Computed example of a mutant assay.
Amino acid sequence: MKTLRYHAVILVTALTLCAAMPQRTSGQSKKLIVIAHRGDHTTAPENTLKAFSDAIATGVDYVEVDVRASSDGELVVMHDATIDRMTTSHGKLSDLKWSDIKQLMVSDKKHPEFGNHKVPLFAEVLKICKGKIGIYLDFKDGDIEKAWRLIQEFDMENRVVVYLNKEEQLQGWRSHAPAVPLMASLPDTVKNINSYLNFQKLVNVQIVDGDHSDYTADLVRGINKNGQSIWVDVQEPDENEALWTKVLSLGVQGMQTDHPRELVRWRSSLK
């Protein structure tokens, strides 16, 4: 994910609301929260209903879901701003109506054996996740009020955390859903706990993320002491147990992975 940079123009007075931290449910490991990046795309194309269903079956705690708006305001699930990579068509998703998007077929060009799948609506993802798993909502763009209404409709208010992609989303989510936990990446300027605390004065988020290389053990301890959780990205071509062991030793609370089955299996071996 791209680092989200906040500026001093954000009004601190608008950020005094305190949201509850996301909680582990019964059966989840206290050692580590596992997030499946765009679902389990080792078995199905990313961000498809099958990828999310397969991730649920692996026993992960959250699925990361990318949400964007069609030209007529429907909230659809796709990572890229264009449909070029995941379909045989071309163009910006935001230029297309839902009636056009729902005709598209998503596939993984590196794995044709995964087959072709529909582009899902956010509501469809909420439906299959309800009562089973949490959602790490990477909110690319769209109507925040509409997204929150859908989350409430499926009784997922306590199972969603929202990753902020734009400065203006911060006040939008605080206005419509003041209790939802928010997440942001560390700015490049954060190198130690003092610069982190200055960042937190502006944003007041409950979770921080970013690449695992952004963190040191000292920084992790300081962030945790300040009351925030850290869910890092470990998606790398050589993602493996050695990397997970190294990252866990920093003291982070969660990892977002491209290999959810293997990470869950490794987590279960921890004592």
Results as ranks from 00 to 15, higher is better:
Glu145Tyr: 05
Pro45Ala: 11
Val63Ile: 11
Trp148Tyr: 15
Phe52Arg: 10
Cys18Phe: 00
Arg261Trp: 03
Lys50Gln: 12
Leu121Asn: 10
Trp173Thr: 04
Val161Ile: 11
Gln200Asp: 09
Ala44Glu: 03
Leu270Thr: 07
Asn204Gln: 09
Leu263Asp: 06
Ile144Met: 08
Arg221Lys: 15
Lys130Ser: 14
Val125Arg: 10
Ala81Val: 12
Ser268Glu: 11
Val119Met: 10
Gln23Val: 00
Val203Gly: 08
Leu104Val: 06
Pro45Leu: 12
Ala177Asn: 07
Leu263Gln: 05
Lys2Thr: 15
His111Cys: 02
Gly222Cys: 13
Asn116Val: 01
Val12Ala: 15
Val247Tyr: 15
Asp211Asn: 11
Val76Thr: 11
Ile144Glu: 11
Arg68Ala: 07
Asp100Asn: 02
Asp108Phe: 06
Ile56Leu: 02
Lys225Pro: 10
Gln200Lys: 10
Val9Ile: 14
Ile151Asp: 09
Gly251Phe: 12
Asn194Ser: 05
Gln23Asp: 01
Arg261Gln: 09
Tyr6Lys: 09
Leu15Glu: 10
Leu219Asn: 10
Gly251Ala: 14
Asn158Leu: 08
Thr88Gln: 04
Asp188Ala: 01
Lys97Arg: 04
Ile83Ser: 01
Ala217Asn: 08
Glu124Gln: 15
Val67Lys: 03
Asp143Asn: 14
Gln103Pro: 00
Trp244Lys: 14
Trp231Asn: 13
Ala51Tyr: 03
Ile193Lys: 09
Leu49Asp: 07
Lys225Arg: 14
Leu93Tyr: 07
Lys201Met: 05
Arg85Ser: 02
Phe139Thr: 12
Arg265Leu: 01
Lys127Trp: 13
Asp155Cys: 10
Ile83Ala: 04
Arg85Val: 00
Tyr62Met: 12
Lys110Asn: 10
Val60His: 04
Arg159Phe: 05
Asn192Ser: 00
Ile33Lys: 04
Glu46Leu: 01
Arg5Trp: 11
Asn47Met: 05
Arg267Ile: 03
Ile144Pro: 05
Ile144Gln: 06
Gln235Asp: 14
Asn158Pro: 02
Leu17Gly: 06
Ile56Val: 06
Arg68Thr: 09
Val162Ser: 03
Asn226Val: 09
Ala14Phe: 13
Gly227Asp: 15
Thr42Ala: 07
Tyr215Asp: 13
Ser249Glu: 15
Ser269Asn: 06
Ala184Cys: 01
Asp66Phe: 02
Asn165Arg: 02
Asp100Cys: 00
Val9Lys: 13
Gly27His: 05
Thr82His: 11
Asn198Ile: 03
Arg265Thr: 03
Gln23Thr: 03
Thr88Asn: 04
Asn226Phe: 13
Tyr196Glu: 03
Lys246Pro: 08
Ile144Lys: 04
Lys92Tyr: 08
Arg24Asp: 01
Ile230Leu: 15
Ala57Phe: 03
Gln103Asp: 01
Gly91Met: 08
Trp231Pro: 08
Thr88Tyr: 01
Glu124Gly: 13
Gln235Glu: 14
Arg24Tyr: 01
Val65Leu: 06
Val63Asn: 05
Val77Pro: 03
Phe139Ala: 11
Met1Asp: 14
Thr58Lys: 06
Arg159Gln: 12
Val190Thr: 00
Val161Thr: 07
Lys271Gly: 09
Leu49Asn: 07
Thr216Trp: 04
Arg261Glu: 04
Pro112Leu: 12
Pro120Asp: 12
Leu104Gln: 08
